[in-house]
């Protein structure tokens, strides 16, 4: 009984800290801009320097974040993270992979890899279905942007096999 109560208590302290995370991050962003703006030169009100405006905004931001830290979050707005981050993390990781591959191999190969992963693991299609959809969607995107809109992408290692760019 006793240990259960403690568990509940620690949980809520954790929650209280957790709810304040965005305010701390916001205040740090404000501080970064504040210090940078002072370096840029404030000037005076009659001859404003490049730093004056960012200082005004940064002070408002820091002020609001401090208020947020003091009065705390209205916890009801905050959603559960636990156990839900896996799929968005896979999403971000594959998008990063796409950007890295895109500048080296062009659109087709990177697009195929991105879509195959998304269709197979995030949409849970079968391998066959995923592959078919990925090829289809990548080809359509290639035709749309490169052929129709004339976009200039990094040299495409796959399209070159067929005489494309």
């Amino acid at each position: 009984m006793n240990s259960e109560q403690t568990a509940v208590a620690t949980h809520s302290v954790k929650d209280k800290i957790f709810q304040r995370v965005p305010y701390v991050v916001g205040a740090l962003i404000g501080l970064y801009f504040l210090l940078g703006a002072i370096d840029l030169g404030v000037g005076t009100l009659s001859t404003p320097g490049p730093g004056l405006w960012p200082i005004i905004v940064a002070v408002i931001l820091i002020g609001c974040c401090v208020v947020g830290m003091v009065i705390g979050g209205d916890g009801e707005d905050i959603e559960e993270f636990a156990g839900r981050l896996l799929r968005p993390t896979i999403g971000v990781a594959t998008l990063s992979l796409f950007i890295l591959m895109f500048s080296r191999f062009g659109l087709v190969l990177s697009g195929l890899v991105l879509l195959l992963i998304w269709f197979r693991f995030l949409a849970r299609e079968t391998w066959f279905m995923s592959a078919a959809l990925a090829v289809g969607a990548t080809v359509v995107t290639y035709l749309l942007f490169v052929q129709l809109l004339g976009a200039r992408f990094p040299d495409d290692v796959i399209a070159q096999l067929w005489g494309g760019r």
Binding site: G91, L114, L115, E125, F145
Partner: peptide
């Protein structure tokens, strides 16, 4: 399924 719409939307968004 949203994974399919999402994947295609992401590809077009990135390229765009």
């Amino acid at each position: 399924r949203i994974g399919i719409i999402g994947g295609i939307a992401m590809l077009i968004t990135l390229v765009g």
